[in-house]
Amino acid sequence: MKNPLNQPTHKRMISIWTWVGLVLAVYGGLVFICGVYYMSNPVAVRGHHPGLWWGGVMILASLWFLYAGKKETV
């Protein structure tokens, strides 16, 4: 489906999915880096490093949205 926010009848606009992808990429990257930096930080769920894997999930999701924004599809 064409993203109507990018339809040629209107001024060219960066897709909303690109914005979502950028936000998730930046935040996912920061969370991942913090996860690495604070690996020794004790949390309630011992043995898990949520910053690492949740940051990774966010980066993967951001790739999907950046792709969707580039293809102008929703």
Binding site: V43, A44, G51
Partner: peptide, 14 residues
């Protein structure tokens, strides 16, 4: 406060 390490706390607050 209980579950989130630094970085994720910022994300939760945001």
């Amino acid at each position: 406060a209980r579950y989130y390490p630094p970085g994720l706390i910022g994300l939760g607050i945001t």
